[in-house]
């Protein structure tokens, strides 16, 4: 169960921090500086404590020695030395933060929309993807907002984190210097599937990126509708709540629902046809299927008519 890969000896990057995807992460030197200072003071305090406990342990006949009960100079010393040290830490942390937060001019802009519990990365050509694809070596700025509750975007390998708040835009930027695949997680607790709200950052060379984007944006035209629907099912995050194998998740499974008659929470029934599916996507609260919570948010404005057609075709194929 615990393979050797699970042992800390096998961990990548340093002991404390994961591998960095940038050449000069601004945060790392500050982290190690603080780690050094912490270790020093911890050893000092605990070292003295242990030394005193051993050296001045209570022994019969030995009385405590008389020492001053205060010493202004000494106390001012251990007030001011820590003050200077934390001042230095503050300064380092602040300047690195400013570097981390100030995007260079001519960033490549992407938009991020988070919802329970899926990521949507919106590319300049209008393509929406469930993963973040970026070209290597270029500064990327993310402008983010949430459709429901607060989420948090964290890419450990890039040391980037920013909350995503409904009703406002937050932004952050980064530059990935190494081609590869990295984790992107949600760090602000957002409900049941919080720990499943995971995406990847795919760092490509510029050529690969351009090729990917051209292809990715074209699937509605290049793929048959049912297959395009399958892609949408992934990319729009329907899979987070709807399975295709018959098991109920947060929402009902799509398997075999087309043509069925379903009970609604308000006691009525409805036949799952094209219009019903369309309405379920655009106005999910209009007809809520009984046995489920009305937690699906509307996709109004996020999916086109062609998208909906493709999704319907896809659901039809799930027998």
């Amino acid at each position: 169960m615990i393979s050797f890969a699970g042992l800390p000896l096998a961990q990548s990057g340093g002991f404390w921090l994961p591998d960095s995807a940038t050449n000069s992460p601004a945060m790392d030197p500050v982290f190690y500086l603080i780690l050094g200072i912490c270790s020093f003071f911890f050893l000092l305090v605990v070292g003295l404590m242990v030394f005193f406990v051993v050296h001045y342990r209570r022994r019969p006949g030995v009385v405590p020695q008389k020492t001053a009960s205060h010493n202004m100079l000494l106390e001012l010393t251990w007030t001011f030395i820590p003050l200077v040290i934390v001042g230095a830490i503050f300064y380092q942390g602040f300047t690195a933060y400013i570097r981390m937060q100030t995007p260079p001019p001519n960033c490549y802009d992407l938009r991020v929309s988070a919802r329970q519990w899926a990521w949507q990365f919106i590319y300049p050509n209008g393509h929406i993807d469930e993963n973040l694809h970026v070209p290597v070596g270029e500064p990327i700025r993310l402008t983010m907002t949430s459709e429901d509750v607060i989420h948090g975007l964290w890419i450990p390998a890039l040391r980037v984190k920013m909350d995503i708040v409904p009703g406002r835009y937050t932004s952050t930027w980064f530059r990935a210097d190494k081609v590869g695949t990295y984790n992107l997680l949600c760090t602000e607790y957002c409900g049941d599937e919080h720990s499943d709200m995971l995406a990847t950052v795919e760092v490509h060379t510029r050529e690969d990126y351009d090729a990917w984007l051209k292809d990715a944006g074209n699937y509605l035209k290049t793929l048959p509708p049912a297959e395009a629907g399958k892609v949408l099912y992934q990319r729009r995050g329907c899979f987070q709540c709807h399975s295709v194998d018959g098991t109920a998740g947060t929402g009902p499974s799509f398997k075999g629902i087309y043509g069925e008659t379903h009970d609604m929470a308000d006691g009525t029934t409805a036949v799952v046809d094209d219009n019903y599916i369309r309405q379920s996507i655009l106005e999910p609260q209009a007809k809520v299927r009984s046995g489920f919570q009305p937690v699906m948010a509307t996709y109004q404005g996020l999916v086109s008519d062609d998208d909906i057609t493709a999704l319907i075709e896809y659901i039809k194929t799930l027998k």
């Binding site: 603080i34 780690l35 380092q92 942390g93 760090t187």
Partner: peptide
């Protein structure tokens, strides 16, 4: 100290 310092807090916040 890691959490009071801005740059490092960004990385370890909410972990």
């Amino acid at each position: 100290l890691f959490l009071g310092s801005l740059a490092t807090d960004i990385h370890v916040h909410d972990t």
